[in-house]
Computed example of a mutant assay.
Amino acid sequence: MEISITRSLSEIKMLNKRISRKISDSIFGGYSVGKKVMTGYDTKEDLEQTVKSDFDSVNDLIARRNEVKSAIVMSNATTKVEIAGVKYTVAEAIERKSSIEYEEHLLNRLKNTYTQIVSRVDDVNDDMNRRLDKHLETLFSKEAKTDVQQTDSVVKSFKEQNEAKLIDPIGLKTQIEKLEQKIEDFLTEVDHVLSTSNAITTINVSE
């Protein structure tokens, strides 16, 4: 029997519930006291038949689920989709969707790092500029400040010792923009692409 992935996923959900309910409700053994069988059964044979029937029913449901699930897994491993210009198997797309939290965590960490170090550099340099102004006032009179060459030399020396500079070997701002766009593009398309693929892709299972 040929069914779509969408229908097979619905069947898996239904089977999950039926298996759990059947296991909980089933009788897998019992006892007798003298010739009296446990409450609810007239004879030993009735109880034995119920136990065997319940056990077989649970195993039939599990076998059906395994068959359908295996067919879905095989299909997902070979069916190709394209998301935000990148080609994936369905299995790869599902995995990336489930693990994209790591990329989001990285993005947040990069953003926090960039914000903190830029803020710190700005604070240090604001303070440096205030101290530089006081330093120049102490060294020179107002008239002397017009000696541009001498002033520039002092400013250069002061900044070399006190100016804060970013150390950014990976280009944080660019990396943040690229990763943010990459995540956004994927999440915008993935659900629609997978839903469409599941609706048109079929698998073969027993009736």
Rank of each mutant, 00 (worst) to 15 (best):
K52S: 14
A84Q: 01
G85R: 06
D185Y: 13
I203Q: 06
A199M: 13
L172H: 07
D126I: 07
L47T: 01
E67F: 02
D60K: 05
E143I: 11
A84S: 03
S10R: 10
E143L: 11
D127V: 14
E103I: 04
R130P: 02
A77R: 12
S99N: 12
M1K: 11
I83S: 00
V193S: 05
M14P: 00
L9N: 08
S70A: 15
T201I: 02
T146E: 15
I19H: 08
N108M: 09
T174N: 12
E92S: 03
Y88N: 01
K142Y: 13
N66V: 11
K36G: 11
V68R: 03
G30Q: 01
I5P: 10
A77C: 04
G171Q: 00
Q49F: 03
D122F: 14
T188W: 10
D122I: 10
I176C: 00
T113R: 13
D127T: 14
L107Y: 09
M38Y: 02
A63G: 03
V148L: 05
M38E: 09
R18P: 00
D147V: 14
S4W: 04
R109D: 10
V148W: 02
D168Y: 11
E95S: 15
R131F: 03
I176D: 01
S153Y: 15
V190R: 05
S10H: 07
K80H: 06
T113V: 07
I12E: 04
I100W: 02
R96I: 08
E184F: 15
S20Q: 04
D191G: 03
E2C: 01
K97M: 12
V73C: 12
L106N: 09
D152E: 10
M14T: 12
M1L: 12
A71G: 09
K156I: 01
I167A: 10
F186P: 02
A77G: 14
L47P: 01
T113G: 07
V73L: 10
S206T: 12
G85I: 00
N76S: 00
K182H: 13
L15N: 00
L187C: 09
V58K: 01
D60W: 04
R64E: 06
M74I: 14
E95N: 09
T201P: 06
E160A: 09
N198M: 08
T6N: 09
L110N: 08
R96T: 06
L179F: 01
V190G: 03
V68G: 00
Y88L: 03
K44F: 07
K159M: 13
K111T: 11
D185N: 08
K87N: 05
I62N: 06
T201E: 05
V118Y: 08
A144I: 07
I83Y: 00
K36Q: 10
S195M: 13
L132E: 03
Q49M: 08
R65M: 07
T113A: 12
F55V: 09
V90D: 02
K35N: 15
V205C: 10
D25E: 15
I23C: 04
S99Q: 13
L187A: 04
T138H: 12
S98P: 01
M74K: 15
T39L: 06
E48G: 05
Y102L: 14
K165A: 07
